[in-house]
Design a protein around this nucleic acid. Structure first.
Lengths: 194, 194, 194, 194
DNA sequence: GATGAATGAGCGTTCATTCAT
DNA sequence: AATGAATGAACGCTCATTCAT
């Protein structure tokens, strides 16, 4: 069974994710990427106009996958705070388990590429426009339990600490274990709770 | 008054700060940097061994300047929370007024260059080893008022939201005005207060 | 018939030989070499890791070709001295006809590149380890006819005069015609004969 | 006593000799040369029009010094061959003791610089036009004892082996001790003697 | 479609030379 | 005369992109 076009496209994206995460956009030559994807250099250009488009497309894929992963069934039996903590823990676990995705996203947002992306939508609504698990939770279930404040600030208080700590955790500078995740989630909740 | 060597060095650093912030390390050729600094390419290499050293030296300068800017006289007459809010407001104002410095630092920490720098020390102790205004406040005055928790998490809860929101504010995606700064600072305080 | 890779590699080596011989390693920019070879700069690096490797590879090629050229059928019917004279004459004719090769070799041996090459092996054993026509003759046929002496001195007495005179001949300072070649070969023989 | 101009000029030439011998013309930047000579870069250009002229001037100096060193009182009491051997031994000893001078000369002759210099004059007449010790000996005392042959070939048979062997000796590839010097000198004599 | 050899603009860096002091 | 900071053309090399097969 020879790989079809879609398979090849995915191979390229997978190789790109790894290489970009490991070496950065600027230290990941197309030739190396092609080799890692077991594809000819020229073939990459059949699926992506140029390196920039490849990066943007990769962002879309990673973003969509991330949003899908964070869907969690409603748990009406537990308290709102507990639901919040569960969501945060899910998020952190997911990103800890997917360091390439995290590094890529960080790099993307921290570059001219990411300027046009509304970063505050990261976890609240996917780039597709659909609302994320977090967004639904905050705008829905938890609405009454959260102090009224600017949406931007709310997002910053929730997402800021997570990304900040994960950066160091994934670089190996810090150990982010369960007790600390709990500390972090509780702190975030206290920051926003009514 | 013709510029002396120190002046020229500063011209180069200034041009580098601007170019790195605007285009990123990898899209700021030495030739363009030289032109912006009104200097010949070769002259840069009289002051800096290579591009990497220039970047590291620039980090030192920016960091030192930032630490100096955040020194604030003790205000024993107001509450600990109010002091915290003042410090955060100072920090945010400073970085809002110095977007190039902010973008450069973000980029530096998010690159192989900054790996060796403990990022959590960003605002808590200067790169010189001296403790920053923030560090002194948290380890001193505010110690009793803060909930016991891992230092890493504490830093994340304080610094994470600030950098997250500033990124968008400086990109022009979000307006970060006084009320929102107050919201943010209060949220951070609630996240860590005992 | 479009040129294949091997052809292109040879074009580069040929252009390099000419340029190195004419201007020296340090005055033969890669760009000029590319132009002379009707090739893009980047293409050179597909065949050679860097300029140094190109030089070493060129040496190999030139050396192998030289060794091959000096093979001469055994002539048992003539005296040892005459055989020696034939060999020297062959060598001189070959190098006179291949001045680029001669200049390149001189330059190679006289540079850090050639330090690791035993220069005394120049004509006595090829770089491949196989013994050259000269080496076979001296260690074999002529062994009994040659005065016992240090191998180094023996080589110097044979090769020294040839290279010395060829340098001037090829520069056009001296005319090296048949009678003189005979004089030289006889002199060398007298220097080493028992 | 501050150094006068002549002293400074000599410092530069000395530093140049060392640097050129150690690193080659092309790896001896003017700045390094200036530092080694304890002189400002600009000062070099007061004494020499450019780097090329410096190299040519250095050649003159080295050549003159070499010729002077090889003057040896006539020794009528010993045989012509013995006188020849003495001269050769003197030459080899001198060059062994002055490896920088030897390396410089080799490099000079082996570069576009040396093409215009009659190399065959190396030891037979100085660049000044005066005849060298060797030249006087061969054209005078030894004339009758030497086989009639082209002057060029004669020189090659005498000088070729010396330079060939010295190159390796000075590079450390070969040990050139007294017995070998004797072997070499005898060989050369046999090459040219009537 | 797929390939990968070929391309050449562009990069970081060096260094002979100049010139204001 | 002497200095050494300043200059910028030129270098070796990389790599995103193209295109003949």
């Amino acid at each position: 069974m020879t790989p079809n076009g879609q398979q090849k496209r995915n191979d390229i994206l997978k190789a790109a994710l790894e290489l970009f995460a490991e070496h950065g956009f600027h230290n990941a030559p197309m030739a190396q990427l092609a080799k890692r994807a077991n594809v000819a250099v020229g073939s990459i250009y059949r699926y992506f106009k140029d390196k920039d488009e490849l990066i943007h497309e990769l962002y879309s894929e990673v973003d969509v996958t991330l949003q899908k992963a964070l869907v969690r069934a409603a748990e009406p039996s537990i308290s709102t705070q507990q639901q919040f903590v569960h969501l945060m823990t899910d998020l952190i676990h997911y990103l800890q388990d997917h360091p390439y995705e995290f590094k890529f996203l960080e790099q993307y947002y921290n570059s001219p590429f990411g300027v046009e992306i509304k970063r505050d939508k990261l976890l609240l609504s996917g780039s597709s426009g659909r609302q994320s698990a977090f967004g639904q939770f905050i705008a829905g279930t938890a609405k009454e339990s959260i102090k009224p404040m600017s949406a931007q600030v709310l997002y910053a208080l929730v997402i800021g600490p997570v990304t900040f700590l994960l950066r160091d955790a994934i670089s190996g500078l810090v150990e982010l274990d369960e007790p600390r995740i709990k500390e972090l989630a509780d702190g975030c909740w206290n920051a926003i709770k009514r």
